Computed example of a mutant assay.
Amino acid sequence: MTPDAVAVAVMIILLFPMSYFTLASPAFLLVRLDIQPVAQLLRGMFNAHFLVMRVAGVIATVALLLDGHLLAALGGAVIAALAIWGRPWFMQRFDDQLSARDAGDAEAARRLRRLHWSGMLGNAVLLVALVAGIPYVAMPA
């Protein structure tokens, strides 16, 4: 059996940004989020990640559909949907906490940290699911 080239390429397209985010985001655990440039940089990283995953998810879905991997395409569609509809929800909460922090709310930095953790956890869950699905997608039946 030889691996399906399209499915392997799609997995790489999805794995690259998810792995990068997994490696880059924990660095922000070492700095305080009440420092304005640090929080803005973290916000920018989340925003970029959502945008990249939106594009990667759509590309993955279309490629897998065209290649006949219907169940795998559903997984790509879920990733794209989470990125498309999750971004406004997540970014609004992040911006609310940034505004609260700037207004003097001492607890806003802690709430930002919880958002940071939840974003990392969500990415990790999707990454584990994607890696676990590689054997099922990359090898023909």
Rank of each mutant, 00 (worst) to 15 (best):
residue 32 R to M: 11
residue 24 A to I: 11
residue 47 N to P: 04
residue 12 I to W: 12
residue 46 F to T: 00
residue 24 A to W: 03
residue 30 L to S: 07
residue 55 V to H: 08
residue 11 M to P: 00
residue 48 A to F: 02
residue 52 V to I: 15
residue 52 V to P: 01
residue 48 A to N: 04
residue 43 R to L: 08
residue 39 A to V: 03
residue 56 A to S: 15
residue 13 I to K: 15
residue 17 P to I: 07
residue 16 F to E: 14
residue 52 V to L: 11
residue 45 M to C: 08
residue 49 H to T: 10
residue 29 L to C: 10
residue 35 I to C: 02
residue 50 F to D: 03
residue 21 F to S: 04
residue 46 F to H: 12
residue 14 L to S: 05
residue 54 R to F: 11
residue 37 P to G: 07
residue 33 L to A: 07
residue 37 P to D: 05
residue 39 A to K: 02
residue 20 Y to V: 15
residue 43 R to V: 01
residue 24 A to K: 15
residue 16 F to G: 03
residue 56 A to Y: 13
residue 10 V to C: 03
residue 46 F to M: 14
residue 16 F to C: 07
residue 56 A to V: 12
residue 15 L to G: 13
residue 51 L to A: 13
residue 35 I to V: 13
residue 26 P to H: 06
residue 9 A to C: 06
residue 30 L to M: 11
residue 38 V to K: 06
residue 9 A to F: 04
residue 33 L to W: 01
residue 11 M to A: 12
residue 48 A to C: 06
residue 22 T to I: 10
residue 48 A to D: 05
residue 16 F to M: 11
residue 36 Q to Y: 08
residue 40 Q to L: 15
residue 47 N to K: 14
residue 51 L to F: 09
residue 35 I to H: 03
residue 30 L to W: 02
residue 55 V to A: 15
residue 51 L to T: 11
residue 23 L to E: 07
residue 44 G to L: 09
residue 53 M to A: 05
residue 13 I to C: 10
residue 29 L to V: 04
residue 51 L to I: 14
residue 42 L to H: 01
residue 41 L to E: 02
residue 31 V to H: 00
residue 34 D to Q: 09
residue 33 L to E: 12
residue 13 I to A: 13
residue 40 Q to Y: 06
residue 38 V to Y: 05
residue 35 I to Y: 03
residue 39 A to S: 11
residue 28 F to C: 00
residue 39 A to E: 01
residue 42 L to W: 01
residue 15 L to K: 10
residue 18 M to D: 02
residue 14 L to K: 04
residue 49 H to G: 03
residue 14 L to W: 11
residue 33 L to G: 05
residue 25 S to H: 06
residue 17 P to C: 10
residue 43 R to T: 02
residue 40 Q to C: 09
residue 52 V to Y: 05
residue 22 T to R: 13
residue 18 M to W: 02
residue 43 R to M: 04
residue 21 F to T: 07
residue 19 S to T: 15
residue 53 M to I: 13
residue 17 P to A: 03
residue 45 M to I: 07
residue 22 T to L: 07
residue 46 F to L: 13
residue 29 L to S: 08
residue 38 V to W: 02
residue 12 I to S: 14
residue 45 M to P: 00
residue 21 F to V: 04
residue 15 L to T: 09
residue 38 V to F: 09
residue 22 T to E: 10
residue 31 V to M: 05
residue 16 F to T: 15
residue 29 L to I: 01
residue 13 I to Y: 07
residue 20 Y to T: 11
residue 32 R to K: 15
residue 50 F to A: 04
residue 41 L to N: 01
residue 27 A to E: 03
residue 34 D to E: 14
residue 13 I to L: 15
residue 41 L to P: 00
residue 27 A to P: 00
residue 42 L to V: 00
residue 40 Q to I: 08
residue 15 L to M: 15
residue 44 G to C: 13
residue 14 L to F: 08
residue 38 V to S: 12
residue 51 L to R: 09
residue 12 I to K: 14
residue 45 M to Y: 06
residue 36 Q to M: 13
residue 27 A to I: 05
residue 19 S to L: 12
residue 16 F to S: 13
residue 32 R to F: 05
residue 46 F to S: 04
residue 29 L to M: 10
residue 25 S to T: 09
residue 13 I to Q: 12
residue 36 Q to F: 11
residue 38 V to N: 08
residue 38 V to C: 06
residue 39 A to M: 06
residue 32 R to Q: 15
